[in-house]
Design a protein around this nucleic acid. Sequence first.
DNA 1: CGCAGGATTGATATCAATCAATAACGGTGG
DNA 2: CCACCGTTATTGATTGATATCAATCCTGCG
Lengths: 253, 253
Amino acid sequence: MAYAKADAPVALQYPCERCPLRDRPGFRDFSEDELAFMSRFKRGELVAAAGTLIFEEGTEGAHLYTILSGWGIRHKQLSDGRRQILNFVLPGDFIGLQASLGGAMDHSVEALTDVLLCVFERDRFTELFDVCPSLAFDLTWLSALEHRLLDGNLLSVGRRTAVERVAYLILLLYRRARARGLAEDDRVVFPFTQQHMADALGMSLVHTNKTLARLRDRGVVSWTRNRFRIHDEERLAALAEWEPAEERPRPFL
Amino acid sequence: MAYAKADAPVALQYPCERCPLRDRPGFRDFSEDELAFMSRFKRGELVAAAGTLIFEEGTEGAHLYTILSGWGIRHKQLSDGRRQILNFVLPGDFIGLQASLGGAMDHSVEALTDVLLCVFERDRFTELFDVCPSLAFDLTWLSALEHRLLDGNLLSVGRRTAVERVAYLILLLYRRARARGLAEDDRVVFPFTQQHMADALGMSLVHTNKTLARLRDRGVVSWTRNRFRIHDEERLAALAEWEPAEERPRPFL
DNA sequence: CGCAGGATTGATATCAATCAATAACGGTGG
DNA sequence: CCACCGTTATTGATTGATATCAATCCTGCG
């Protein structure tokens, strides 16, 4: 597995005032102070090529990142290769919080597409709390959102049937993508394979495929290659027993 | 399901200077300032009787709690009753962070034993960030630890075999309990039934029982009723593919 | 002593994993 | 444009793990 060259962030392409995340829907704005702090906190940008590791389980990370564009996965592995995808990572997500608290990462993050990262210095992390409480609060907020997603995934993998699980995953990813302007109407591109879905669902590849086929046969979703189309969002939500949560503008760092 | 009387915390029994958590091993100390802040932040104490709900999925919580003593579970349910236990809650754990960010809880917390709770005001939560950055940092730290546990559980439920899963759970709970002084040598009391274990593992009750029996037959663990005894911690760790993580003094609020 | 909740065990049914091909697709070089 | 190749998707057959069903057995308690 190739490793992203995390040691040499390229020069700033996007000063915080023109952060590409601002162009996307659903994100909250910074105050003057916050913007000023982030500008100092930001160290540069980095592109992680598709397939490379942004963090590797067992190693210490020197940087923290906000995803500016692209998709990734957080995952853990057992020694014999069994892999569990813990969550998918999308633009606006903050990764490496664990690294900021010292010690080794207990999971890896891998880029599914080329991923543009906003790079922060791990050593200056505590400054965030001392200097800019509102951003520290936002960070906690983001962390709690991620926590929520994990809870949902655990319920899925532990207790939902195969069909329910697949429905839940597709709906979740579709809605997360849509909230960030990554979907057009009922169409989304999922830049990953069915093997990735299987690893996220705790199912085998074959069974994942057959379960997807059942959803397609019922007219709920369809796809060709990576391009998915959600024909019946309601049905999907019913199958997944989706719990509606109000959408509020999401903070980011 | 009875509901804990969260509206009427009793008078302070333990001022923060004599917080019962201080008597336990593994917790870090407060500075003068932190102690002063916590004393103001703390609103009182509350006992949740065994079997009652401390938080209920779908409702808003008005308080936040630190567990002073007792065991609990965080869990989510599907409408037909299938339940997934997300994690076990032990003394020193902070619960309700999600409530502090507004909106409804997406999971419940239930007391397994009588649980003594340190009660904080939700409305004054942001103060923590403004007034006492070091404690805000600790909170984030705690949140990241919990995150880590969840990742581990998800790996278990998604990819470990039944034996590995049970081994992992027993070892995790034993070590968590021991770190808080709740175990004597290789003995620990787990105040819950095999049904609880099953719900945490994403397995059926019967299969959980049979898997436990296999571990007993191999001489790895034994138990009578709630009292477990860990005969071969090494073997358990090997089965679970435990990843050693350094132990540092744990913060708490 | 009798009851209730929990634990245990054996028999059977199902779901999902694995094995094994084949098919579709995308990219590459001629 | 076409032949070739590697990856991914799809499908059927079989195996295996786990769920479910159904007793029975403990154990602590009133």
